[in-house]
Every structure is written in structure tokens, then in C-alpha cells.
Design a protein around this nucleic acid. Sequence first.
DNA 1: AAAAATTTTTAGGCTCGTCTAAAAAATATA
DNA 2: TATATTTTTTAGACGAGCCTAAAAATTTTT
Lengths: 228, 228
Amino acid sequence: MLSSTEENYLKSIYKSIETTQKAVNTNTIAAEMGTTAASVTDMIKRLAEKEYVLHQKYYGVLLTEKGNEAAKTLIRKQRLWKVFLVEWLHFSWDEVNELAEQLEHIRSEELTNRLDVFLNHPKFDPLGEAIPDIEGIFTERKQLLISDLAIDSGGMIVAVKNDTSIFLQELAALDLSIGTRIDVLEISPTDGSIKVILDNEKEILLSKKMGENVFVKPFHSRNRHIVY
Amino acid sequence: MLSSTEENYLKSIYKSIETTQKAVNTNTIAAEMGTTAASVTDMIKRLAEKEYVLHQKYYGVLLTEKGNEAAKTLIRKQRLWKVFLVEWLHFSWDEVNELAEQLEHIRSEELTNRLDVFLNHPKFDPLGEAIPDIEGIFTERKQLLISDLAIDSGGMIVAVKNDTSIFLQELAALDLSIGTRIDVLEISPTDGSIKVILDNEKEILLSKKMGENVFVKPFHSRNRHIVY
DNA sequence: AAAAATTTTTAGGCTCGTCTAAAAAATATA
DNA sequence: TATATTTTTTAGACGAGCCTAAAAATTTTT
């Protein structure tokens, strides 16, 4: 049985390995966890003892199969809760991280699976991250970004790529949220900024960067034209 | 900020005071919490330090106003989660206690209140316990028990009085659950046992004791008669 | 390759929540 | 009222998870 703290370390290690595809070093984990290298060494020893990680002194940490499974289960739980918080309790994107962080530690496989059923087996969370299914399989995202849309085409916002609190608040300030209809009017040839119309109502200008961080589900061509 | 453990002690103290209307002694808490009197003394000191309880050596423990509020918030959270688990995730009565015990420690007022809204401000949990509202006010239950029903009258099961795991499992085995329609056919003059028909389908015999532990919402007279 | 800088580990200590054993206080019994 | 019993508290210890400071190992620089 893992403590919440142990679970958080595991998640952090998983994420780091996922991005770098290499053994994680102590300082990286310490930075991610907001703690010291010494504490990390302590914890790594505990997790190695319990066979969740492989540890070589002065080299780094890798996950065992058991550790990998555990990390994926946590990610599954966290992302399912995010779906619940956004879709059913109407939390905004920038509010769910902290809550899901707590909820993911609730210990009950049954609860996770029933939540999954209740939410209708979602494949992605509201922040655009894939949700592993009960077998631990991730669905590959093939969704488009706003920046992938052509002029005169449109879609519905389904997720975000960047989940920093600041970015999510920026989006909220621009009235961009899940379900917002977005149609591209112009794309600047100089800086790539995108003039869009939201829900057929409000025109705004998005920076290129902004457009590259929001996923949309494109409308079929027959729905594509804007109704004024 | 209280730890989960501190919160559990507070809840235990609250419950004890609620039933006895007297200061709680160390051993009672120890028994309730499954720990030792010495540990309780330690914890009481911490809670007194933080001004959640009043403690007089060798006398007992009472809650401060602050402690009372905190305990009621926990109870509110726990019971709202139970409603969610039963009504939306279709857990049975006997499965929710352990889960709600974990969920009640999630720290977020906003979450509690949104859950309350989502669930449509329920006044009672599925086990029949009143849910304090955001102000901490409990609704008085005025619901009937199966044993209060007259012959030829009926109602719908809405809650249970006794929430021990064994009892809840017994109910499940008898096919008694929330929403089950129950109509009284006979009441034994000797032992008070009650012959009922469930959902107009299945006749069973309930002991008097059983009938005294299940709440029903009575049907109005026009609906009362059984349709065969 | 030696010195310098960085990274990682060890050593020792702290708090929280727990324990057992013993002391102190309160209550019950003779 | 003196003694016995029960209850409560104190004292001391332990593991988990964290810290800082210092030592050890590794990597980088010269």
C-alpha cells in the first residue's frame, strides 16, 4: 500500500521518464516535488524497497512494471476526476488541477471504474490529456489545434495543451472555454495571429502561441460557414 | 489547518457529544477511534492547542464553537458524497461508508458547495442521516418507518436508520433498496413481523426489527392500493 | 590529469501520530 | 476512611516524511 506522498513521487517519476525517456536524476524529482535532493534519496530508497522503482546510486531512477502500472492508475484517476469536475460541477480549467490532485488519492478501484462508466468512458480530460483505460491503454490524440484550422473553417473547443494556471486564466479572460464555437476569419501572414469569432458573436484576435495551445474538434464542411 | 486524523477525532467527539449530551471521556474516544487512551490524550492536547476542543484533565472533552463548525462541515461533506455515490454511481448502501470516509477529507469549500448544487441540495443522505446545509442547519426528519405503515398502505424506501455493514447487506439480500415500492399486507399480532410486497411483485416477511430500521416516503391515499 | 564545480548520498535531527509501560488522579469498595 | 480498582496522563520510543549540513562520488573545466 502506497501513501499519498509515495504516489506523488511515483507520478512525478513517471512524467519525467515519459518526456525524457531516460532515468530520472534526484535533483529533477526534487525540483518537481518542491523538496530537497536528500528527501528524494530517502523516498527513492523506500520505493525501491517496495519494488516500484529501480535505483542505482549516482545514476538515477527507473520505474518497474509494478511502478508503471501504479503511476498509470493514478493518472487515470486524476484525469477522470477532472472530467467530472469540469463537465458536471462546472469548474473552470484552471481550478481542477489542485482538486484532482487530492481526489486521485482516494483508494478504490471500484470507484474509479464506476466514475469511468458514469462519465461514459472519456478518452481525454478537459485539459486535453489522454485518459488510460482500465487496461492502461492511452488513446492517441488526433485532434486539431486552433492554429491548424484554415481560414473560414471552424470547430468547437475541446481541450487545452498547456495547463499552467496562468494560461488557463488567460483563456478564461478571453471567454474561451470548452464548447465554445470558434471560426477562423483571418490569419496574419506576419506574426501568425488568428482573428476568430466566438460562438458567432464576438470577434477576438489570438496570438499564434495561443492558437497552438487549444484543441478543437473541427466542424464538418457543411457546418463550416459562419452564420451572421 | 487540520490533518485527516485530527478531523476524524473531531467527528468522533462530535458524534459522542451529540448522543450523550455530555463531555466525552478519553476511553470512549479511544474505543471509537480504535486506538489507545494515551494517543487520545496526545491528540486532545493538540486539538485544544488549536482551539477546536475544551479539555479539562481527568474530566473530559467538549467542542468549541470552532470545533463544532468544523465537525458539521465534515458531516456535510461526508453525507453529500454518500448521496453522489448512491444516486449517481449506484453504489449500494453498504459500500458507501468507507468511500465517503475518504472523500470527506478533500479540502475545498467550493467543491462541497458545487456538489451540493449538483445533487440539488439534498436534505438527507441515503442512510437517512440529515445533511447540514451551508449554514450548518439540519432538517428534522419526519419520515415514517416501514413499521409505521398500516396494513394496506405503502410507500417508497428512501433511507435506512441503521447503517452497520451487516444490516445493509441483509437488506440487499432481501432486495430492499432505495426506490423499492413497499406495501404492507399483514402485520403479525404476535411478533410484529410484517408481510410486505415489493414493487408489486415479490412477497416477503420482514421482522419487526427490520421494519423499524427502514424509512419510507408514504404514498398518498389515492395511490395506496396495490395493483395486482 | 588535477582542480573546481556539481550532484548525490549520508548523518543527524525535527514533527506527527502512534505505541507501551508506568505514574498520577479519580472512583468504587470494604 | 483506608484500600483497591479504574481512568487518565506522563514518559519515552518508534516510523514516516521531511529538513540542513557535510561527506562522497561524478562531471566539467582548465
